[in-house]
Design a binder for these strands. Structure first.
Lengths: 201, 201
DNA sequence: TTAGTTAAGTACCGGTCGGTGCAGAACTCT
DNA sequence: AGAGTTCTGCACCGACCGGTACTTAACTAA
């Protein structure tokens, strides 16, 4: 491994592919999949359409790569939250993370996976479905974590892990919309506190 | 008033303008503002582009009329809920209404005001802002209702009406996303029950 | 019948969409 | 140096975008 220093043939790429992807991700985040035009994407990436196609394939694959990067970066809080010791701490960390990510000091408000393609025309059905799966996967992982919490006695025996996970996911999605509506982190944190008032002891 | 039977000059309109608007609304609901093309809109409306422009002005005004119709029709639950006798009943009616409207037996899943233009390119910024205002207005009306509930002693003196309203709105938005994700009314009703567990006595 | 008014259908507008063909530039390998 | 390989910039593609000019159809008023 570590061929990164191996000399490669041909003209070397004239731009940082990671930085270009980061910028594309932010455009998709702000505009959604269909709302982001190639002109705006490549403009923000600082490269031409030709270079984008050579490096990423096409717009759809660029979005898929951007979504991967989003999951590993801004949305990593969702995975980290699962490591908290109690179900309540998981829920709190998850929602606080959602608040932080959807209200960055600079950068787009909201959540890429929600803004990406909630509604869309037929051509981008593939992206729409990809995002549905992405969001549902996050819910399933939360559900499994809560199920473990029941096993560990950290949640009451009669608690319904699936239901709790869906509730937390619903709050997360709602937070994304509220962030797009202009609410800031302080206001959203209040909402999170309110949501957890009824959390099973 | 009631000039509807007055004879009007010129060739009579060959389609039902109300029905056409209803169909346009459903296309916007499913596709969002930008995702709905004139071709698809007029196709569903059963008229030509020319007739649409003559009757509604342009795409943006068609959307505004469709949004009005949405507020008076599918989204009327939001206003009706305010008439419930207690704050808790208001919250429950609001969320149950959101569930029903976002999961119709036939017709698009989700909420038109959320799917419409969460993320969008610059050209449709006007529609984006219109929807932000629409959603925020709904929150303000809920807040006022909860404030009244505090005055009437129906909510505890220390309850924060704005915070509660924002929480309920957040749940409503989240429900819209979950509906778009494929959840059905039964599952969403469970989520609503979970959300109201911590509602102030 | 004729003039005036409004709607409908066709054919078209410039602009932008995502995507490419091609020539040349910049590199490695022999 | 020369061949082989890869990336870049420009010009361009057909398709579709929202929107419109113009002719014709269908009505009322005189």
């Amino acid at each position: 491994m570590s061929d990164s220093r191996r000399a490669v043939m041909g003209r070397p790429r004239g731009f940082d592919i990671d930085q270009a992807l980061e910028r594309a991700m932010r455009v998709f985040w702000a505009r959604g999949y269909e709302g982001a035009s190639l002109a705006e994407l490549t403009g923000a990436m600082g490269i031409t359409k030709t270079s984008m196609y050579a490096a990423f394939g096409n717009k759809e694959q660029l979005f898929r790569k951007a979504l991967q990067r989003y999951g590993a970066g801004p949305a990593a809080y969702a995975t980290r939250a699962l490591e908290e010791p109690t179900a309540r701490a998981v829920a709190l960390a998850f929602l606080r993370g959602a608040v932080r990510t959807t209200t960055p000091p600079r950068g787009p408000s909201g959540c890429l996976t929600v803004q990406g393609a909630l509604a869309s025309s037929d051509e981008s059905r593939a992206i729409h479905d990809l995002l549905v799966d992405w969001r549902n996967d996050a819910g399933v992982r939360l559900e499994e974590r809560f199920r473990r919490a029941v096993d560990e006695g950290d949640l009451p025996r009669d608690a319904d892990p699936r239901r709790l996970a869906r509730f937390i996911m619903t709050m997360g999605f709602g937070i994304a919309v509220q962030a797009a509506n202009g609410l800031g982190p302080a206001e959203l944190d209040e909402i999170v506190d309110t949501a957890l008032l009824g959390w099973p002891a």
